[in-house]
Amino acid sequence: MKTSLKVERAKNDFTQADLAERVGVSRQTINAIEKGRYNLSIVLALKLAYIFKVRVEDIFELEQQDWE
């Protein structure tokens, strides 16, 4: 899954710690999502989209390998 979380975070001038605190997860989680090492839950995706006032699809995008 491709993500533009880091870009959205930079646009909004949030550190990983800021964002983690806002959505109630650890900094490790935000880092793992940005690095593509962790596929997050729907609830967390919706929370992130809510914080950035965008749609979930604006931050996360399926890749070919997600269908395999």
Partner: peptide, 11 residues
């Protein structure tokens, strides 16, 4: 529980 137990740490 970890200090910041969340879904990633649970995984």
């Amino acid at each position: 529980k970890h200090k910041n137990e969340d879904e990633f740490i649970s995984k």
